[in-house]
Nucleic acid binder design. Structure first.
Lengths: 201, 201
DNA sequence: GTCTATACGGTGATAGAC
DNA sequence: GTCTATCACCGTATAGAC
């Protein structure tokens, strides 16, 4: 609040304005969808004019890109972690549950945003080194070799287990479930799916 | 091809044009999203001009409504079927699998359309007697009373089991899985989820 | 950093000829 | 039933004053 001679506060506010835009945009993109949300609506929710947004972001799509780029690092982390573990079938369960459990309250907002705009991810053409869906594919590949019986159906079931947290968010949509309940349900169903996959016929 | 004096062929073509519009619109709404699809694009895909669409449908939203109304009857059927069965825990498994299995090749297109446009369903405000999501809620309510242990988490897990077919479609997105594989994976994971719910602690 | 004003294209939709 | 022509509107984005 003080230190008006350093300019520090002003610069910090600028950074926070950017973050505020991202927060409001993510909320609107989640509730109304990316295409149905206009720059004017974002600006109004912030109490500014829409032209002011273009000082902080080059355009609507750049706001979107900044949101998706915030994610992706944790998928890389899981991939690295998997490579360092003993490669046995039990790793399937450990990796899937580690992934599901990693979604705390704050990260669920990212899941909701993605769930509300499923087509954006493959339409956005990220830079080759910043892909997010492809590392999830790599995780599935790494884990699929541990399956007792590897077939298209079992690989798809493994994918479903990894995406349990997304399924839980979507199943809870428009109903009154807490974030803790959503994570608990995702964990339980993911565990059940992995159990069935490991108990091979 | 003949019978040019009855007018029957012409009338039948008219009906087929309406169905063609619905087919093309559903494809575009599925691949690009409803908001991102313009009336001009739908018309071009059909080889006609945009204004001609308004002869068959009052507007873009009416095309959408006609698509969602095509579904919903089968949910009602399941609800009726459930009411006529002996009310025991095993009915959980039978009902969920019956629901998942009911999605043949053709009906999966409807799931893909819904999965690609998740926000449309609660934005469309259907007539009170034509709701689709609410009957699914009624199904969950009817089945939840059969749960060995009823809690928010188990109810949510039951919801997830019912929506396994949706999860399978989304998990298969952008990957090369056949429709049969998708249904098989959905059935397997739904069964695993129900098994875990019935094996109460 | 935010504002007003504006350019420009695409959108859903309608009117009326054929 | 399909067309051409046209409408009003809203979208993103930019220019330039303050």
């Amino acid at each position: 609040m003080s230190t008006s001679d350093t300019g520090y506060v002003e610069r910090r506010q600028g950074g926070e304005t950017r973050a505020e835009i991202q927060r409001v945009a993510r909320e609107l993109f989640t509730s109304k969808g990316y295409e149905a949300t206009s720059m004017r609506e974002i600006a109004e929710a912030l109490g500014i004019k829409k032209a002011s947004l273009y000082y902080h972001f080059a355009g609507k799509e750049e706001i979107l890109r900044s949101l998706v780029q915030q994610r992706g690092a944790e998928a890389e982390n899981l991939l690295d972690w998997i490579a360092r573990q003993p490669q046995q079938p039990e790793l399937l369960r450990l990796a899937v549950l580690r992934w599901v459990e990693s979604f705390s309250k704050e990260k669920l907002k990212g899941i909701r945003f993605i769930s509300a705009n499923p087509l954006l991810m493959d339409a956005i053409e990220q830079h080759p080194d910043e892909r997010i869906g492809s590392t999830l594919v790599a995780i599935v590949d790494a884990l699929a070799s541990l399956l007792p019986e590897r077939s298209p159906v079992t690989v798809l079931r493994l994918r479903m287990a990894l995406l349990s947290i997304n399924s839980a968010v979507e199943a809870a949509h428009r109903e009154s479930f807490t974030d803790d309940e959503i994570v608990a349900a995702a964990r339980a169903n993911a565990a059940a799916a992995i159990d069935a996959l490991l108990a091979h016929a």
